[in-house]
């Protein structure tokens, strides 16, 4: 046990060091690289806490997707004129504000009663009614369905926010620049080789999510990465944002979720409730639609605002 304890101690020390480096780095690119490393280490910490679902989400979304978004930001900020940073007083104020939030959070964590209040027994008692084997999926899709529904709507709103940055004449056009890669080049080769494997892994992670760690968000990120790879390798182009098919895929998840949730009012007696006999089928249906929508939304978030006229 001592060896594992030492490993945890090392992990915590490295996480703190990398987090400090990310904050203290003067160069935007260096800060982004530290942030990605921080996300991967946090994922390891979640594995050590036996929270594999959270670890997968952190690695895929926290480190991977957010890292790519931040790299895009770095490239854009470098292109545009440098604005002077905040002055000394402002920096001190920001530092004090962050320190106050950290202290408050630490105080809150330290003042939790021991043993901590837990809903685990309640979840364990109710889980057979959902027909699922993975308690995380049961919480996300059944017991706390509201949260997940709102999360997917927030993602959609974020994408609308990105799209609305497009000037009027480009509205409805294709996001980003057309990527070109040499047809015999390494990137084009990877773009042909990896997508079948990525699709398989994405569908597997979605499907296994009802019984083991996995689910719509993790699978959606993998599928988004596959799509982005094909776009970056020049094998496929980002669709114009006015495309009806694209918009249908984007709203499919929230619409199916809302539809089944509303039907629950009449069939199961509560909004977002499921009749026990069909619970698993309905949850997997919602997850499937969510996976598609999340994949499309995340990929288009990375692709950015429309930059080519329709």
């Amino acid at each position: 046990m001592t060896a594992l304890w030492l490993l945890d101690l090392c992990l915590v020390a490295v996480i703190l060091a990398v987090a400090l480096s990310a904050v203290a780095a003067r160069d935007l690119f260096a800060a982004t690289v530290f942030f990605v490393a921080y996300g991967l280490l946090i994922a390891l910490a979640w594995v050590r806490l036996d929270a594999v679902d959270v670890a997968l989400a952190e690695a895929a979304i926290g480190a991977g997707l957010t890292g790519v978004l931040l790299l895009g930001v770095t490239a854009r900020v470098h292109m545009e004129a440098r604005t002077p940073g905040p002055g000394r007083g402002m920096r001190l104020a920001i530092g004090a504000g962050c320190a106050a939030v950290s202290v408050a959070l630490a105080a809150a964590v330290l003042s939790l009663p021991v043993p901590a209040p837990s809903l685990v027994p309640a979840v364990e008692a109710a889980i057979p009614a959902t027909g699922l084997g993975n308690p995380v999926t049961a919480v996300l899709l059944a017991f706390r369905g509201y949260d997940t529904l709102l999360e997917t709507l927030v993602l959609l709103l974020a994408l609308l926010g990105v799209w609305s940055l497009a000037p009027d004449r480009l509205w409805g056009g294709r996001p980003g620049l057309r990527h070109r890669a040499r047809p015999e080049g390494t990137l084009a080769w990877l773009g042909r080789l990896l997508p079948p494997i990525g699709l398989l892994v994405g569908v597997y992670v979605f499907w296994i999510g009802s019984d083991q760690p996995g689910g719509a968000f993790q699978a959606g990120t993998i599928l988004a990465a596959v799509w982005l790879l094909a776009i970056m390798a020049g094998l496929s182009d980002a669709p114009p944002v006015r495309s009806l098919a694209l918009r249908l895929v984007l709203v499919a998840g929230p619409v199916v979720f809302l539809g089944i949730g509303t039907a629950g009012l009449f069939v199961a007696g509560a909004f977002l409730g499921y009749p026990p006999a069909a619970a698993k089928t309905l949850i997997v249906t919602v997850e499937a639609a969510l996976t598609l929508s999340i994949a499309a939304t995340l990929a288009l978030l990375v692709a950015g605002a429309p930059e080519r006229a329709p």
Partner: peptide, 16 residues
């Protein structure tokens, strides 16, 4: 094998 594939490709791209 996947790590090999990713490493080899990224090495090529960075080198280029």
């Amino acid at each position: 094998l996947l790590a090999l594939l990713a490493a080899a490709t990224v090495a090529q791209l960075v080198a280029r």
